[in-house]
Design a protein around this nucleic acid. Structure first.
Length: 240
DNA sequence: AAAGGTCCCAACCGCTAGTTT
DNA sequence: AAAACTAGCGGTTGGGACCTT
């Protein structure tokens, strides 16, 4: 879609500053960014505007990718077990959100930071103050997040099909992306990833048990995945 | 019913460290 | 060696949705 047409779509809320757009991303922008990363990989974010035709600065593109579009993101609520991990790691490292995030696969530093601020920053934990209220909120949130997750999957599905229609040049990356978004039958690697990301359709409690009772040696895992981009390109389920 | 408060999340900003030229 | 560029981090803000009074 030509920029002019795209810009028309954004009339009313898009803010242009020194030629850069700000504010919420549109699905079209998302598509362009995903396509760009598919073709060029992560990095060189300042080139995105030029190469992908996005009126976003590099920082904005990177952030959008890292926090929202990356295929390996886990969505949905923070599980109690993740919460305890966050508490533990925060006690150890303080506000080093990215460090904490590295120990929670599929979670972003931004997500953890937001979660912490919402739930723990204030004196006392809200959820311990009024269990009834807290539960109602939790259920509502869960419902909301399920909708969000469905919407995200639908969006990604659409993007995947759009991208795949346009070329079949990078089958391995395409397969990877599809597998990440829609984990397939529980073959060894797919199941592993499904378990990690909670997309496998297992009940949440099971996820927790499987994932955390064996509490993976996350440092080792992290150490082995030193370059996510390379990882993706080489069909990462071998864990590089 | 509506006004004000709270929660939550996405996105931006400023700064710094690392890398390249 | 130093300037310019790039990527990443943590703090902060804006705004929609929901809740309470």
């Amino acid at each position: 879609m030509p920029w002019g047409v795209m810009a028309q779509d954004m009339v009313g809320w898009g803010i242009m500053e020194e030629g850069w757009r700000k504010g919420p991303w549109t699905s079209e922008e998302d598509r362009l960014l995903v396509e760009h990363v598919k073709l060029h990989g992560e990095g060189k974010w300042n080139n995105v505007s030029r190469l992908a035709g996005l009126k976003r600065n590099g920082k904005s593109c990177r952030l959008r990718w890292v926090n929202y579009l990356r295929p390996d993101l886990k969505r949905g609520q923070i599980t109690p077990h993740e919460e305890s991990i966050i508490l533990e790691l925060h006690a150890r490292w303080g506000n080093r959100w990215s460090t904490i995030a590295r120990s929670l696969p599929g979670r972003t530093d931004n997500e953890i930071k937001n979660y912490w601020r919402t739930h723990f920053k204030k004196k006392g934990n809200i959820s311990s103050q009024n269990p009834e209220k807290s539960r109602a909120r939790f259920l509502k949130k869960q419902q909301f997040q399920q909708q969000q997750q469905q919407r995200h999957q639908t969006d990604m599905k659409r993007m995947v099909s759009l991208l795949d229609e346009s070329d079949n040049k990078l089958p391995s990356f395409t397969q990877l992306r599809q597998e990440m978004v829609f984990p397939s039958a529980p073959d060894e690697q797919g199941l592993l990833y499904s378990l990690i990301n909670g997309y496998g359709g297992l009940p949440e409690a099971s996820n927790d048990v499987v994932i955390w009772d064996g509490l993976w040696n996350l440092d080792d895992l992290h150490g082995s995945i030193t370059n996510r981009a390379n990882c993706q390109q080489s069909l990462a389920f071998n864990f590089c």
